[in-house]
């Protein structure tokens, strides 16, 4: 699907929700959707769950946390499977965001799969990223590491009614103050919440509104849009190249080379370069399919 391209942008605030499996992303999506509805905004939700690396199938279970939204005509929820994409989303997520934007939703929530430390595609698709943490999963060294925690525009410590929440809040706040920020830079707020009890959700919604306002006044929104478009086009190019040059059967002619790698006569790097060279020759002889 690529037809959403030439459509006018309608101005949805696209918000990413990411965090570990079971941290409460779906429940937070429901709670945020309810706050947005109470504030008169319509809400689109894109919820991504993983595809099996073995069968390719998927159980899409995020909806279960949002069942009571299904009958509200101002909310539209669509579940998607990763289908082999590795960055926490699926390839069609960007197109789905475009469609929800074009359909006029005021808020679009994009919920990633449960992530570990390094699945950061959501920052290239959304205006604001909420990273959901929970008490008891790590210490201040975990909070110091690069990756998912770095991409937060708003930190939410969910299940904040549980033991250890104060410590998690403190560690995240301490991490953010280790390096001095520019005076006009956005300082990600660190907020405690209980999505299941719907406590602290208004503050998260306010923080997201504040972040969008900051993006607009600072000119960062325009910069992010540029980065997002570039990343998206490059990703499509990557997929097209892979699909065109390495489609079904592409490796058949190279079995002998792969056997040589197995026998340690050829390095994986040399084999891959040779394989790509031959694929490119084949591509030149029959034009890359648009």
């Amino acid at each position: 699907m690529g037809g959403a391209g030439g459509r006018p942008r309608r101005g949805a605030h696209v918000v990413g929700l990411t965090g570990a499996p079971g941290s409460g992303k779906s429940t937070l999506a429901r709670a945020l959707a309810r706050v947005a509805r109470a504030r008169g905004r319509t809400v689109g939700v894109i919820a991504v769950d993983p595809s099996s690396p073995f069968s390719g199938g998927a159980i899409l279970g995020d909806r279960i946390r949002m069942n009571d939204l299904a009958l509200d005509p101002g909310v539209f929820i669509r579940s998607m499977a990763t289908r082999g994409a590795l960055g926490g989303l699926c390839r069609a997520a960007a197109d789905a965001v475009d469609l929800m934007d074009a359909a006029g939703f005021g808020l679009v929530l994009v919920e990633t799969v449960g992530v570990g430390q390094d699945e950061v595609d959501v920052m290239r698709l959304t205006h604001s990223v909420v990273v959901v943490s929970v008490p008891g999963l790590g210490d201040d060294i975990q909070a110091l590491k690069a990756g998912v925690l770095e991409i937060a525009d708003v930190h939410v410590v969910n299940k904040a009614d549980r033991e250890g929440a104060d410590r998690t809040l403190a560690e995240l706040r301490a991490m953010l103050t280790l390096v001095p920020a520019a005076a006009d830079a956005w300082m990600p707020p660190v907020l405690g919440a209980s999505a299941a009890r719907e406590e602290g959700i208004e503050a998260v919604a306010d923080a997201l509104d504040g972040h969008l306002a900051h993006l607009k006044t600072s000119g960062e929104l325009e910069r992010r849009r540029r980065t997002m478009v570039t990343a998206r086009v490059l990703r499509i190019v990557q997929d097209l190249v892979a699909e065109t040059l390495l489609g079904p059967g592409a490796l058949d002619a190279d079995r002998a080379q792969l056997e040589r790698v197995l026998r340690r006569e050829l390095t994986p790097h040399a084999c891959a370069r040779a394989l790509l060279g031959r694929a490119a020759e084949r591509g030149r002889s029959r034009d890359v399919r648009p």
């Binding site: 099996s52 073995f54 069968s55 199938g57 159980i59 899409l60 279960i64």
Partner: peptide, 10 residues
Amino acid sequence: RDAGMDVVYT
């Protein structure tokens, strides 16, 4: 799922 389908469970 194991047959390769996308399954939404309510």
